[in-house]
Computed example of a mutant assay.
Amino acid sequence: MLTDVETLVIKIGSAILVDAETSRLREDWLEALALDLSALQDKRIILVSSGAIALGRQRLGLFGKSLTLAQKQACAAAGQSRLTRAYEDALGARGIVTAQALLTLNDTEHRRRWLNARSTLETLLDLKAIPIINENDTVATDEIRYGDNDRLAARTAQMIGADMLILLSDIDGLYTADPRKDAGAKHLPVITSLTDEIKAMGGEPNAATGMGTGGMATKLAAADIATSAGSDMVICDGREPGALAKLWSGGRHSLFKAKDNPRKARAQWIGGTLKPCGCVTIDKGALKALRDGSSLLPAGVTSVSGTFEKGDAVSILSDGQEIARGLIAYDHPQADRIKGLKSGEISAVLGYENGAALIHRDNLVML
């Protein structure tokens, strides 16, 4: 299953990581996860993990009742440090470096913040660390939060161009009906298209399941995001220790096939979906460099026009013709100030730098 996978996002729910009765961490499960991940150190891996609120309940003694928003935020604050330390201890014992990253809805929907988050995650992956992502429930409100980590995991997979997203769940995949209520429900091993019929199998949105806030409806919403971005998605039963190893060896699961590969899906998004907010004109040397697959450096830019912010889409012109499009790394005034400069001169002019490239090759598509 993982032969061609380079970048992998794994989502872990509260009900898997934390015991429902005691709100205590399932340490044996986490140790088994660390063992499974140690066998995948040739992959780029991100974990999206729930559990902070559940662990915070135990620390603050808030058992057996529904929580107000303020109480949820308090539990998240009390539990997040415990969650981070648990991953650090378990994975560190296997020689794996971890890093905490707390995101909100705005971080994955606002282009500037999206680029900043993506840059941080890419740097961590390049340094062979495993980012542990959770929604920042301490500050998020109902109006600016995902509310479930299935969709956050899908947005993360989209953000970094993951080849695969794995949702470790309390069920081994998608069924034609709820198998706990319908003995005739059939398991679907491969889903090639998210038709209306398939989406209807998810039931009502946001159906509560134990300590978690997701349900099959949110998992299908995640599948829609991930597969549209070029990532395959898997739902499998993650309750038993060694769930990943079982999946690698052919354990039962449902595979949602991507519509395209991540790089092509991202190129289509940049080239055909985003409306350019400005233009940069380049010289012949920069044109050749772009055709050879390089990033656009300030030295090759002769003029800048339009009004744009960091993360906006801009057109790249040569001889008056649009030859490429990309997400720019600097606001319009800063881009105008550094045009024509060598990359090493950016800091001296701006007092900082946001990378040597005006448009990184990963954020650029030739037209």
Rank of each mutant, 00 (worst) to 15 (best):
M1W: 13
E6V: 13
L8D: 12
V9G: 09
S14G: 10
A15Y: 03
A15S: 15
D28A: 15
Q58W: 08
L60D: 00
F63W: 06
K65Y: 03
S66F: 03
A76H: 00
G79C: 03
A86P: 06
G92Y: 11
R94V: 07
E109C: 08
R112V: 14
R112Y: 12
T123F: 11
T141H: 12
T141M: 09
D142S: 15
E143Y: 00
R145T: 05
D148F: 00
D150S: 01
I166D: 04
G173R: 04
R180I: 10
K181D: 10
A183N: 15
A183Y: 00
T192M: 11
A200Y: 09
G215K: 02
M216F: 13
L220S: 11
A221S: 13
A226M: 06
D232M: 02
V234R: 07
D237H: 04
E240S: 15
P241N: 05
G250W: 01
R266S: 08
V280M: 01
D283I: 11
R291F: 13
G293T: 00
G300L: 02
S303K: 06
G306Y: 07
T307Q: 14
K310N: 09
G311Q: 12
D312E: 10
A313T: 13
V314Q: 04
I323T: 01
R325T: 10
D336I: 04
L341Q: 12
E345L: 13
I346F: 03
I346K: 09
V349D: 07
N354P: 06
N363L: 14
V365P: 04
